[in-house]
C-alpha cells in the first residue's frame, strides 16, 4: 500500500531547511552555514521519512537496514571536511572510508554468516567499498562542475525515483518507500535550482546525499534481491550530468540532455527488473 505522508514530510523538512540555508528571495551573500544546512536538509528529510514509515528506530536497530538513517546523519560530520581546502582531503577520504566500511560490514552480517564464503565476502565488500568511494568522489566533483541550475538536482531526482521503482519491482514495497522518501527531499533542490540557478547549493554538501543513494542501492542488493548489474546502472545514472550543455550551463536547456542521458540507464534498470509474470 502506498503511503504518501512520509513523502510530504520529507519534502517539507528538506525544503524548509534549504530555504533557511539559502534564502533565495534575497540577493545578499550566502550564509557561511549554508552547506551545513543543505546537508542537514537531506539528512533530515530522509530521516523524517524513515521515521514516518517505520517509527522511531531501536538503538541498536533490530534490522541492519535501519542503520542507514544513522549513517546519513553521521555523514554530516564530513561537511566541514568537504568545505576545507586541500588539507582536508585525506581526513575526508579516511573518514568516508571508515564510515562506508563500517556500514558495509554491519549490513552484510547475515550474508557472511549464512551465504558467502571468505572469497565471496572479500569480493563483495571490496567491490562495494570501491564503488562507494568512487561514487562519493564523483558526486562531489559533479556538485562542483554543475554547481548551479536544475541539471544535477533533476538527474539525482530521476535516479532516486529509479531506485525506488527498481526496489519495488524487485519485491519489496517496504524498501521502495524508503528509497522513494529521498526523492521528495531532492524536490526542494530542484526548485532552488530553477529559482536561483546562480547558487551553488549542492557544493560541499554531497556526503549525506551520496551516502543515502549508495546505501539504498546496497540495501536493495542485500535485502530486496536487486541484481547488482541493475544497481550499477542506477549508480551510473548521475554521471549523465557531465554531458555538455546546449546553452547556458545552469539553464533549463542544459538540463534536458542530461536528464535524457540519465533516463537511459534508469530505464534499462527498470526494464531488467520487470517481473516475468506478476503474481498479483
Amino acid at each position: 500500500m502506498f503511503h504518501p505522508l512520509p513523502i510530504l514530510y520529507a519534502f517539507a523538512a528538506a525544503a524548509a531547511l534549504l530555504a533557511l540555508a539559502w534564502r533565495p528571495w534575497r540577493r545578499e551573500a550566502e550564509s557561511s552555514h549554508a552547506p551545513v544546512l543543505t546537508a542537514l536538509a537531506f539528512a533530515a528529510g530522509f530521516g523524517l521519512a524513515q521515521v514516518a514509515l517505520y517509527g522511531l528506530p531501536q538503538i541498536p536497530p533490530s534490522a541492519r537496514s535501519e542503520w542507514l538513517g544513522f549513517l546519513v546523519l553521521a555523514t554530516l560530520a564530513l561537511v566541514p571536511l568537504e568545505r576545507s581546502s586541500r588539507g582536508g582531503r585525506v581526513p575526508l577520504l579516511l573518514s568516508s572510508l571508515a564510515l562506508a566500511a563500517w556500514f558495509l560490514w554491519t549490513t552484510t552480517g547475515p550474508k557472511r554468516e549464512y551465504t558467502w564464503d571468505n572469497p565471496a565476502t572479500a569480493l563483495w565488500l571490496g567491490g562495494a567499498l570501491a564503488a562507494w568511494l568512487w561514487h562519493t568522489a564523483s558526486l562531489r566533483d559533479l556538485a562542483r562542475r554543475r554547481a548551479g541550475g536544475p541539471s544535477l538536482p533533476l538527474v539525482l531526482f530521476a535516479t532516486t525515483v529509479g531506485i525506488a521503482v527498481v526496489v519495488g519491482l524487485s519485491g519489496s514495497v517496504n524498501y521502495a518507500h524508503l528509497a522513494g522518501a529521498l526523492a521528495p527531499a531532492l524536490g526542494g533542490l530542484v526548485i532552488l535550482g530553477v529559482w536561483r540557478p546562480d547558487l551553488a547549493a549542492l557544493t560541499s554538501a554531497t556526503a549525506p546525499l551520496a551516502t543515502a543513494l549508495l546505501g539504498l542501492l546496497w540495501i536493495g542488493i542485500l535485502f530486496a534481491e536487486v541484481p547488482w548489474p541493475v544497481a550499477l546502472l542506477l549508480l551510473a545514472a548521475p554521471e549523465a550530468a557531465r554531458l555538455p550543455a546546449w546553452g547556458p550551463d545552469s539553464g533549463w536547456k542544459a538540463a534536458i540532455p542530461r536528464l535524457v542521458g540519465a533516463a537511459l540507464p534508469i530505464a534499462a534498470a527498470v526494464v531488467l527488473s520487470l517481473p516475468e509474470e506478476p503474481y498479483y
Binding site: 524487485s170 519489496s172 535485502f223 534481491e225
Partner: peptide, 20 residues
C-alpha cells in the same frame, strides 16, 4: 510462484535477507 516467493522473502514479510 517465483514472483510471490520473492515478495514473501522481502522486507514486506519474512525479510529473509536480514533474518535468514
Amino acid at each position: 510462484n517465483d514472483g510471490r516467493d520473492k515478495h514473501i522473502r522481502s522486507a514486506d514479510f519474512l525479510n529473509a535477507g536480514e533474518f535468514p
